[in-house]
């Protein structure tokens, strides 16, 4: 079996909440939000893993912790066997080159004061990807790669459409020749017709460069379209993970089942709706003991309120954290 490209072990990311002075004097315990709460995940070369969950599930935090934009409070992220948040600056810089990110907001992810060419130029120069005299040609090649024409090079982001900005963000990420992309809601802000263009582009790039991807999204249909495997997150934990078709056709965890049932479908006609889940996701400051999903679970039992569910292996590569997986 091949070695995983990225391997996450027991990762926890916590955000401490600042106590007020009076709170501290009154003996309030320091609180912290467990945004990522003990995640294990392997990503293999050329593989796309979809990360789904509602807001507050910790999927974005997990993505950023992989890129060491947040420091983990426990556990580690190994990329090609190397810990992303330790090691000397040179080694980490090299590592960063291999692990790039694409963001949600197409405009905010580009420096408004730099032209497209300047943005890409800087990355190429900084990492000396190509000799200086070849930079203009390389910029043109990268723009072509993401489906932009060379005359876009001198535009500022505000003169581009959302889809074009997202392509520039991709060109910037691709400029340093990464082996893995973390895409955080990369198509969520785009209109459907543009979204389809960018999704196809991602598939092409994945194919051409053998990229591994972590695709973070709340839109389940998009995740199904692009992922090989899917991890479902709830309150900082991966509650179910498996091959795409297992997750979408044979979901085992009641949360995954509810999530899928809640997605509106094009094929159905107008129907009488009965909301599948009541209430909201609990606050990460106050995660219930036992199963995190107990407060909303339609089939909750007594044991769920006291004992954290084990990870049950349903079939090869398919695991769900629930007491009642059959």
């Amino acid at each position: 079996m091949t070695e995983p490209l990225l391997s996450i072990r027991g990762l926890r990311v916590e955000f401490p909440k600042r106590r007020t002075l009076t709170g501290a004097l009154l003996g309030q315990k320091p609180m912290s939000a467990r945004a990522v709460d003990g995640v294990d995940l392997d990503v293999y070369p050329r593989e796309t893993v979809g990360l789904v969950g509602e807001s507050g599930s910790g999927k974005t935090t997990l993505g950023r912790a992989i890129l060491s934009l947040y420091q983990p409070s426990a556990g580690q992220v190994l990329f090609k066997g190397q810990n992303v948040s330790t090691g000397d600056a040179v080694a980490r810089q090299k590592l960063h080159r291999n692990l790039q990110m694409v963001f949600q907001n197409p405009y905010a992810s580009l420096n408004p004061r730099m032209t497209v060419a300047q943005t890409i130029d800087e990355a190429l120069r900084f990492h000396t990807i190509v000799p200086a005299q070849d930079i203009p040609a390389e910029i043109e090649r990268l723009l072509g790669l993401v489906g932009l024409t060379a005359d876009m090079a001198n535009r500022y982001p505000q003169a581009l459409s959302g889809g074009q900005c997202q392509r520039v963000g991709l060109a910037r990420a691709m400029s340093v020749q990464p082996s893995m992309l973390v895409l955080d809601e990369a198509v969520a802000a785009l209109d459907v017709s543009i979204q389809a263009q960018v999704l196809n582009l991602l598939l092409d790039l994945r194919e051409a460069f053998g990229l591994a991807m972590i695709f973070i999204a709340h839109e389940l249909s998009v995740v199904r379209h692009i992922s090989h495997r899917v991890a479902v997150m709830y309150l900082g934990k991966i509650v179910e993970i498996g091959r795409r078709d297992d997750i979408f056709e044979r979901p085992k965890h009641p949360y995954t089942q509810s999530l899928l049932a809640a997605v509106p479908r094009l094929g159905t006609a107008k129907r009488k709706r009965q909301a599948v889940l009541q209430g909201d996701i609990p606050s990460p400051y106050n995660i219930p003991t036992g199963c995190p999903f107990q407060t909303r679970c339609p089939s909750v039992q007594d044991i769920c309120r006291s004992v954290a569910p084990p990870s049950i292996t349903v079939s090869a590569d398919h695991k769900a954290d629930c007491h009642f997986v059959t």
């Binding site: 249909s221 379209h225 479908r265």
Partner: peptide, 11 residues
């Protein structure tokens, strides 16, 4: 151009 939740990931 819409990916379908019940689709098979066709282009």
């Amino acid at each position: 151009s819409i990916p379908r939740i019940d689709g098979k990931g066709q282009r």
